[in-house]
Every structure is written in C-alpha cells, then in structure tokens.
Design a protein around this nucleic acid. Structure first.
Length: 398
DNA sequence: CGTCCTTTGAAGTCT
DNA sequence: AGACTTCAAAGGACG
C-alpha cells in the first residue's frame, strides 16, 4: 500500500524525486524544452535517416551506446540526491503558482494557460503549470491524462465548446463543482482531506496550440479538450469506478488484461461468463512524473518528428526529460505526487501489487541473460549492444 | 492476438 | 537496507 504521505500526508513524493540533469556539460545542456526542436530534432532526423539506411534508430542508437545513456543518467542521479532541498526551494520560490491557487487550485483541469509557446514549446516559466495537456481526461487524478487521445479525436464537436461547457459545469458534472469528493464518491475514510484545490472550479484555459503543434496534435488537443467530458473513454463504457464513477485510472477490461477488483480486499470471483461484459475494471497505477511528461509531450514529438514508433519516441522523451530544467521537472514531480495522493485517497485499498502479473513480461531467465550487460534493473532497459538488432546498430548518439 | 521495444519513476518483492 | 522486479503509456514491429 502506498505509503501515506510522509510529511503530513501531502508528500507522497519520494524525497528523492527530482533528478539531476546536466551536471556535466553534456551537450544536452539544459535545453529549455523548447530548444529541442532544433538540435534534438536534427539528431532525430538523422537518426531516422540512418535507421532507414540500416544503421540504427535513435532508440537503437542509445541502446547501442549505453554510455551515451549513462552520460545523461548519471547526472540525473546526482541531481536526484541533491534535489530535495532544491525542490523545496525551487518549487516554492520560483513557482509559487503551483502551491497557490493558480496552478493547482484547478488541479483537475490544471490549467495550462499557456503551456505551449508559439513555437510549440512549453513555456518553461509559466507559473500556470504548463504541464497539463489539455486535459482530455477531466479527471482530477490525471490531469494530464487524456487516456488515449484517440478517444477524443473522433468527435465531431466543435473545439471551442469545452470552455463553455466547463464554465457551465458541463453536462456530466455533478452538482457540486468544487470538490472531487463530490464527483468521485470516495470510499469511506478516503478523500476527506482532498482540498478544494483539487476541485472543478478552475476554468479550463486550454491553450489552443496556436502553433507549435502540427495539425494532428493540435486538433487532437482541441478535440480532447472539447470532449473530454463527453467522450472520455471511461465514460463511454466500462471505465467506471466500482462506484460507478468514471475514472481514468480505471481501465475497462479489454479482454487482454485480467480483471481484478480494485479493492483487493474483495475476493476474486470465478468470473462466470455472464459477467464477461460486466467485468470490473482494472485500476492502473498512477502515472509518475516521467509518464506524465510523456503523455504531454508525445504528440508533440510525433508531430515534430513524424515518428511513430513509441520506443524511439520514448528515447527522445527520455533525453528531453533530462534536458528539462529543474523547475520544469519539478512541476511534473509535483503533479505526479498529487496524482499518487489522489489515487491513494480514491482507492485506499489499492496496491500496485494488484496489477502484478497482469502484464506478461520477459521471463526472468531472459532478464538475467540481458542482465549481464543491462544497466537498469533486470529489465534490460539498457541492453548490450549485441542485443540490439543489426539494423539498429550504431550511429552516433548525441 | 500477444508480446516486445523503450523511457523513468514508484512501489512491490526478495535477499 | 539494498537489490531486483513489475507496471504505468504508447504504437509500430514481430512471431
């Protein structure tokens, strides 16, 4: 069970959450996020070219060059260790908005008043918490979580609808507009402490990507912003909390994932065929800072690079993540922290363990094999070069 | 259809 | 306590 906030229950975040980056002047010196476009993109492109030529993908490149990865990661660790204090300082000082009403008062919608600069980059200094992707997911828990943009991009509604809806409290919004508890009936003893800061009141200031994003992305965003309330996947069907409350963390059973009760106290049932359709949803883990970041930035990267392969994109995102400024990362850590907190409050009995075994992963043997060269846990995140398919091999990384 | 790839972080389990 | 394992998202690739 998630530890209940050390530090007054508000701090679920690991004390070492913030990670380092750029201590050692690697070339990715603190790229303010928006700097990515030029150089990183160039890298990416060239990588793609190389890939097509059989020399490797960006992903492969990194994989092929663990050192490069390391270069980025070590500093991170370093930072991680020194961060705690910085975090406090940094976050509270430089981004007061995060602690005041502006940014988080509307946590559920996490307004991003201007998350993206005209050039398509995030505004590093925006104290409005540029973190949020136009929240398709209206859920307070996952402000950044669109839970699949696809779900929101098929609608035919007009993009600007949302703002209105939001102000008018939308069709689906419960009578009370300021508290999550109202919207998400919480388990007993649950969300008592959820503060108004997590309410619905914030108006959506979804930034219409006035630029930066290419069509696909911006449209997706606007669509998402527009329909989150109507077409949120969870609202379309099975993604309901057992209480009947839609929640992004709850995923409809797709037949792929085994079902389990969100409350592990409940005993698993034999699952008669009848229930097949009425299967209970799986409650997913709350997203961590990086996942939130990926959610937000993926579309952007895809648009910029016309890349689609998630593995490659994730590598890029990983690099960009490290290139983020401390402040920017802090925003995501803070968001993640709140997510965890909220998740915990919403599902007091839930444990990450509940989902263990639902996803088949590489076998342990396999792990150990790659383990010999892998750098990261047994998952072989950093594989040996030899493990990289020939066509993905070398090319200079960075 | 199911799993892998790839990333980081959180949290679980194991030693 | 520290190391290791699993899952979270995503979508193309592959068996």
């Amino acid at each position: 069970m998630p530890q209940l906030g050390s530090g007054g229950g508000d701090d679920l975040g690991a004390t070492d959450e913030m990670l380092a980056f750029k201590d050692e002047g690697e070339q990715e010196e603190k790229i303010p996020e928006n700097a990515f476009t030029e150089r990183d993109l160039a890298d990416l492109k060239s990588s793609l070219v190389n890939e097509s030529e059989g020399s490797g993908s960006p992903a492969a490149a990194a994989a092929a060059d663990p050192e490069a990865v390391r270069r980025v990661q070590d500093p991170q660790r370093a930072y991680q260790e020194k961060l705690p204090e910085h975090m406090d300082d940094g976050m509270k000082h430089q981004d007061p908005g995060m602690y005041k009403g502006s940014a988080y008062s509307g946590y559920p919608f996490l307004m991003l008043s201007d998350p993206y600069l005209p050039n398509g980059s995030m505004s590093p200094l925006s104290n409005k918490v540029p973190v949020v992707q136009p929240s398709h997911g209206v859920h307070p828990l996952t402000p950044l979580i669109p839970y699949s943009n696809d779900h929101f991009s098929h609608g035919s509604h007009s993009p600007h609808l949302p703002a209105d809806i939001n102000q008018k409290q939308g069709v689906h919004r419960p009578s009370q507009t300021s508290d999550i508890p109202g919207f998400y009936p919480l388990p007993p003893g649950g969300v008592g402490q959820i503060t108004p800061s997590m309410g619905w009141q914030s108006q959506s200031v979804y930034p219409l990507p006035s630029c930066g994003f290419r069509q696909p992305y911006s449209s997706a965003l606007s669509a998402g912003a527009s329909f989150s309330r109507f077409t949120h996947p969870l609202m379309l069907g099975s993604g309901m909390h057992t209480t009947g409350i839609p929640h992004p963390a709850i995923v409809p059973h797709s037949g792929k994932q085994e079902m389990e009760h969100y409350d592990r106290n409940m005993k698993p049932q034999p699952e008669p065929k009848r229930e097949k359709e009425a299967k209970k949803p799986t409650i997913k883990k709350p997203l961590n800072a990086f996942m939130l970041y990926m959610k937000e930035m993926r579309a952007k990267v895809i648009a910029e690079c016309t890349l689609k392969e998630s593995a490659a994109i994730n590598q890029i995102l990983g690099r960009r993540w490290h290139a983020l400024s401390r402040e920017e990362q802090a925003k995501y850590y803070e968001l993640a922290r709140k997510e965890r907190q909220l998740h915990m409050q919403l599902y007091p009995g839930w444990s990450a363990r509940d989902n263990y075994g639902k996803k088949k992963r590489r076998t342990r043997e396999k792990q150990q094999d790659s383990n010999s060269g892998g750098k990261r846990s047994a998952f072989g995140t950093y594989k040996e070069k030899d493990a990289v398919p020939a066509q993905f091999l070398p090319m200079e990384v960075l």
